[in-house]
């Protein structure tokens, strides 16, 4: 009898200490993209400032490949102890598993919280005749099949385009120029190889500032604090928004306590003025959202994308 009590006590002590002591070693943050990309930068900034709020450091690892799924898989199959995190946004993680016919979906991972927002902007070259989004759509309707719109197939920019076509109720006939990656699309525009595209604001900003590119609309639900005079698509009468929200995921089955500790730490770090300053310098906006909101946002996004995929027959 005594033995059982001792064993039970020992177990309790161990169990509670395991949770109480989280984190005991460094936490790996998996970024499914290459270093220097926008996910990477926001993660590194946050990870660096996190040192004040968590006793153990966040270590960033870049695991690229397979449209970000390599990284996702790593976290999917990790031990559910809260030491492996994924940094992703819905435009990618909600879509990629469907398109690649993978055996998992975004909700096979455990969401922790949303952390950072970046803006998506619709841009045109500086000498383009389009002054706002309306001009673009008019031109497309007037001369279908001549305007060159650059997208990454099955990526966020593609879905933005499809969503716009949906909401306008018009089949926007354009020349779709495939260009994977924000940078590639900007380069293609600078080189005179495309007329309009959507990229993250951070990627476009240096060129907007230098005057080579003009923004015609923000694809967010509200105006960006970095470009206050650029109207959103909604303001211009097109009911399309894409909020580029980066969220943190971990492995399913991670104990709730661990998740709470993480979420709390993220919440604190997002309120930290230093973090805010560093993020805003790179055109990111701190935007903490708790688990329920995160799940809601992702579910909505996933539903939208799935319907777009079905409607436009993106996969058979």
């Amino acid at each position: 009898m005594r033995k059982i009590i001792v064993a039970a006590l020992a177990f309790l002590v161990m169990a509670s200490s395991a949770f109480a002591a989280y984190p005991e070693k460094s936490i790996q943050v998996v970024i499914p993209w290459g270093p220097g990309g926008s996910s990477d930068i926001s993660a590194r900034i946050v990870a660096d400032k996190m040192k004040k709020y968590l006793p153990q450091p966040l270590v960033i690892t870049n695991l690229t490949g397979a449209l970000g799924l390599n990284g996702a898989r790593q976290v999917l199959n990790a031990r559910p102890d809260g030491y492996t995190l994924l940094w992703e946004h819905p435009g990618n993680l909600a879509v990629a598993p469907i398109v690649t016919k993978s055996d998992f979906r975004w909700n096979d991972l455990e969401p922790v919280c949303t952390v950072v927002r970046s803006d998506m902007v619709m841009i045109v070259p500086k000498d383009s005749p389009f002054k706002n989004a309306g001009d673009v759509f008019e031109a497309i309707k007037k001369a279908p099949g001549t305007v060159r719109w650059s997208i990454a197939l099955n990526g966020v920019s593609h879905f933005a385009y499809l969503a716009m076509a949906e909401s306008l109720g018009v089949d926007l006939k354009v020349i779709l120029v495939p260009s994977p990656g924000d940078k590639a699309r900007v380069v293609s525009m600078l080189g005179g190889n495309c007329d309009v595209t959507c990229v993250s604001y951070a990627a476009a900003e240096p060129y907007i500032k230098s005057g080579d590119i003009r923004p015609v609309a923000m694809v967010n639900s509200q105006r960006s604090q970095f470009a206050k005079d650029v109207p959103t698509l909604i303001e211009q009468g097109v009911n399309v928004t894409y909020d580029y929200l980066c969220a943190v995921f971990t492995t399913k089955g991670t104990p709730d306590e661990v998740r709470e500790i993480l979420a709390e730490a993220f919440q604190k770090v997002m309120k930290d003025p230093e973090t805010i300053k560093a993020l805003e310098a790179q055109s990111f906006t701190p935007d903490f959202k708790d688990r329920e909101s995160t799940v809601k946002i992702w579910t909505e996004a996933a539903t939208l994308y799935e319907s777009l995929i079905k409607k436009y027959n993106l996969i058979k």
Binding site: K101, L176, P178, Y312, N313, I315, K316
Partner: peptide, 8 residues
């Protein structure tokens, strides 16, 4: 290979 979108 599923070619749902016969793009380019």
């Amino acid at each position: 290979i599923s070619s749902g979108l016969d793009f380019a």
